[in-house]
Design a protein around this nucleic acid. Structure first.
Lengths: 127, 127
DNA sequence: GTAGAACTTGACGTCAATGTGAGAATCAAG
DNA sequence: CTTGATTCTCACATTGACGTCAAGTTCTAC
């Protein structure tokens, strides 16, 4: 499929897809004229890339991480070397902290929303 | 306390603290000479600001949200108006999605780390 | 009063993922 | 062949929360 279709199916802009290629995250065959021609697994791959970006990983981390994932492109999964593993362990800890922070922020918002939903308590406290 | 101490106690750079003030997130008295003089609750406030930034809220959202929080500066908490509540509800949903994404990414990393930790399965499958 | 640390404002730089626009080339269909 | 949609590359702009440097002022301790 070509870049427009991939963009529509993944919800990722064409610009970003080209950027992913530039960063080595995504590859594509080329038509004789030079247009990108993506295979079907590219859809799943792009979704995973987005997830990892959302998790706060930068492209250089992702590019080393992707080959270690199953089903990334049909090929057998590489095994992460010790250095990558140690980096990923750090990232995992960071993600855990992020989740904790998000939980706190979530309950903060909850409290505010609940307070606003409750009948506004003006002046005279429950008699 | 002055900006240096607040920076040390919160782990936030002086630059950021001035930026928070510029964005209306944080206020301070001034000494006769113009130096910022923070009160004790500023510490907690800065921490909360950081949490909300970590949750992906931008300064303009945070600045409207802070007055609705308890203990932010000792004053009574304002109640969020309907518009803010609707925005916060959207943010809360976004945070929920973020947490879900993070969980997925976390288990992705987990799988890779576990695979690398397991004895590398080279060629000859269990005879 | 004076040295040096801490602070001030202001302006410009950074970073990483994208947006955006120009101008040329390619593709699919009639 | 032609037209119009799509894609190409290249390059510059944007965003937001900061880093960083400069030149000047204030505070603190002696």
């Amino acid at each position: 499929m070509r870049i427009g279709e991939l963009a529509r199916r993944t919800g990722v802009s064409e610009r970003s897809l080209r950027y992913y290629e530039q960063e080595g995250l995504l590859t594509a065959e080329r038509t004789p004229g030079g247009h990108r021609d993506y295979t079907e697994p590219a859809v799943a791959r792009v979704r995973r890339i987005q997830e990892l970006y959302a998790a706060g990983l930068c492209s250089s981390k992702i590019v080393r991480l992707l080959p270690c994932m199953r089903d990334s492109d049909g090929g057998p999964a590489e095994t992460a070397d010790a250095f990558l593993v140690s980096e990923l362990t750090v990232e995992r800890a960071r993600i855990d902290r992020m989740i904790e922070d998000l939980r706190r922020s979530r309950s903060l918002l909850d409290a505010i929303i609940d307070t606003a939903a409750a009948p506004p308590d003006r002046g005279s406290p429950t008699p």
